[in-house]
Design a protein around this nucleic acid. Structure first.
Lengths: 235, 235
DNA sequence: AGAAAAATTCAGGCTTCTCTCAGGAAACTC
DNA sequence: GAGTTTCCTGAGAGAAGCCTGAATTTTTCT
């Protein structure tokens, strides 16, 4: 019973044999107002599909017993027609994965960033038309960010961002004005098991500022001792 | 007895092997209208979860026997799905801790300030939607304070505050008109084992007054020999 | 494989914050 | 109104936090 702007929150089934991963994902999804169920292997997954009737499945490819592709195949045979987001290890040969993005499906390699996962899930659901789709376009003052095209504009001027810069900006724009702690940002924007130097964040904030502030006043404010926030410049 | 806007007060379980800490926290929580139970180790904690059915757990990481992470893991396996606020020593490597803010969880390093603890607990519960969420925005006359954005306004004018100034003002605004003793303020706003010169408080009151009174009459009154209070100016 | 781009680490320098201290002002007491 | 206590506030040292350029490693592309 929270804000729940759309009456139908989407249901997502998370299938992964590593409980830690399943937990991370399901926590993140719940936090983003999805209904979540989990399964630890292929058979459980098939049961859950029948019971829980998910709108989307996050499906690990590498699992003991029925692997992800096999699960997908069974579902296709049942013509269950539920979009799937596959999770694969980094070194999985692309061959099998390739054909996936042709349908409504998609895939990500582990480890991924949570923001990215959420973003992709929203894209898929939006396509499938099952959720009251927030627009893929985020705006904040004269800043615009398009999730589909990955374009960013400030005051109409296109701005080239690298992948990390883009994800960082998207997270900030998704939480305008709210002060986000360093830990929050690292957890959401970087890969979930990122254990490196937390100063990357400072560096990337620095990069973003340099690019964004070419066309207007600074928007990313430092809240010393806490974190960063997107905020209208004080005039 | 106090405002208690929501009929259902949230239940919080405090788990710490140092009784002093557990006491400090549970007193503070009770004072803020939470129902509180405590546990001294991991196993007690698991029992209490079953009995007391808390809405949130304040969980020390470093404990003899089952440590905090292990407790959390057990709970996750039971899919108990209760948000957790971890307490860690200052020097704990971030590695294990980070990753927590993906879900609804959060963490604080000891020693912390009690006000900050309460504030974070409210944030988590608000997110989890289990309590009729007081808005993150405190107001007193023409003063406004937003906990999410850490913005403060007086009569519409934005006011820049440092971290300590902000926490002090939040405490005052959370207890409008009530006279707060120096000891209370030091205990809540500063780290609980703060042993420095108590005159810091005077200095910070001074800072706050200077910033706030630019846009209106003085709101922080000195109650000589006792402490300070937020109070409407006598006309 | 080689080159280019991106991501991350690192270190120096700079800014800001916190807390201490001390003199003076204000408020109480008698 | 003098004495005493309490409080206010400016100044400054030290520490913490932050920024940014540059070096290094990793990844991607051709």
């Amino acid at each position: 019973m929270i804000q729940s702007t759309d009456q139908a929150t989407a249901r997502v089934l998370v299938v992964d044999d590593e409980p830690n991963i399943a937990d991370v994902i399901s926590m993140a999804l719940k936090y983003n107002d999805f209904e979540v169920a989990t399964a630890g292997d292929g058979n459980q997954a098939l049961e859950q599909v029948a019971e829980f009737r998910p709108d989307l499945i996050v499906l690990d490819v590498m699992m003991p017993g029925l692997d992800g592709f096999q699960v997908a195949k069974r579902l296709a045979e049942r013509s269950a027609d539920i979009p799937i987001l596959f999770l694969t290890a980094r070194d999985t040969t692309d061959d099998k994965i390739r054909g996936l993005t042709i349908g409504g499906d998609d895939y990500m390699t582990k480890p991924f960033s949570v923001e990215e996962l959420i973003a992709r899930i929203k894209v898929i659901l939006r396509r499938a038309g099952r959720t009251a789709a927030d627009s893929p376009r985020l705006t904040f003052l004269d800043l615009e960010l398009d999730d589909d095209t990955r374009e960013v504009f400030r005051d109409g001027h296109p701005i080239e961002l690298t992948d990390t810069e883009f994800r960082l900006l998207r997270y900030l724009m998704g939480n305008p004005r709210r002060v986000l702690s360093r830990a929050q940002i690292l957890d959401h924007v970087w890969e979930y098991d990122f254990a490196g130097d937390a100063r990357v964040l400072e560096t990337y904030v620095s990069y973003l500022r340099r690019k964004l502030d070419k066309y207007g006043p600074g928007l990313i404010v430092t809240v010393r001792g806490v974190g960063y926030a997107l905020r209208e410049p004080k005039d």
